[in-house]
């Protein structure tokens, strides 16, 4: 235990916490996207999938781990960020970091903060009504309702761009911190990273686009009310 505390107190230990929580959140993204794809199969399929997820004790247990990661990842990130600011009290008059680094790596804190804000709204829109409302709404109906609003769709898509930028830096960074980004694996890691920062956000983007453009508003309102 003492060894673990000393490890966490070190700079590398905190980075490893960021890495592991980040990678766990990445695995969640895969599950979430695959699950959400059932939306395209229609109302019944999605609602029964949603019911299965809520009733499954393993999923409920993993949910605690998910919320712990959602809490620790930004919290430790913030601690590291404060610490990093302290390491350079006097700023450069001219500092050309942009000549040496990709944009995604320079704005990780910003993209991360915006994704976190998005998650708060996202949980409020879907998770809280589904879990805590007295009369449980239809999950499919909630999605249709949310994505019938143009501002919500735009907000959702912008948040996905920030997520893409966050993962563009974060995914490879997680493996670098774990010491696994060695010369032999850089190519493979970049390929897998592409799936995470490009394909996954693109998959999530398909939903608001589909529901906004291909579901007539009247149908959307009717489905939201649970009218068949």
């Amino acid at each position: 235990m003492e060894k673990l505390i000393a490890f966490y107190n070190s700079s590398i230990g905190k980075k490893v916490t960021m890495s592991l929580t980040g990678l766990f959140l990445c695995t969640f993204l895969v599950e979430h996207l695959v699950g959400n794809m059932i939306l395209f199969a229609g109302r019944e399929a999605f609602d029964s999938y949603s019911e299965f997820m809520v009733a499954n004790p393993i999923i409920r247990a993993v949910e605690y781990l998910l919320f712990a990661s959602l809490l620790f990842h930004p919290l430790v990130g913030l601690l590291l960020w404060i610490n990093n600011k302290r390491a350079r009290p006097q700023k450069y008059d001219v500092y050309m970091l942009k000549e040496n680094t990709p944009l995604a790596s320079r704005i990780t804190m910003l993209t991360g903060s915006l994704v976190f804000l998005f998650l708060v709204v996202h949980l409020r829109t879907f998770f809280i009504p589904l879990r805590f409302a007295e009369v449980k709404p239809s999950p499919y109906g909630l999605v249709v309702e949310a994505f019938s609003s143009a501002p919500y769709c735009a907000f959702y898509l912008v948040a996905l761009v920030f997520l893409a930028y966050h993962l563009r830096h974060g995914f490879q960074s997680a493996f670098q911190t774990l010491g696994l980004r060695t010369k032999s694996y850089i190519g493979l890691l970049d390929a897998v990273a592409f799936i995470f920062w490009f394909i996954i956000p693109l998959g999530f983007a398909a939903m608001p686009i589909y529901f906004y453009f291909f579901q007539p508003a009247t149908t959307a309102a009717a489905t939201a009310l649970g009218v068949h």
Partner: peptide, 17 residues
């Protein structure tokens, strides 16, 4: 690593500058 942290250097954020 312990000495590096004690000296007050920042944490690596893997941007490779």
């Amino acid at each position: 690593v312990d000495q590096m942290d004690k000296e007050g250097f920042g944490n690596c954020s893997n941007n490779y500058a």
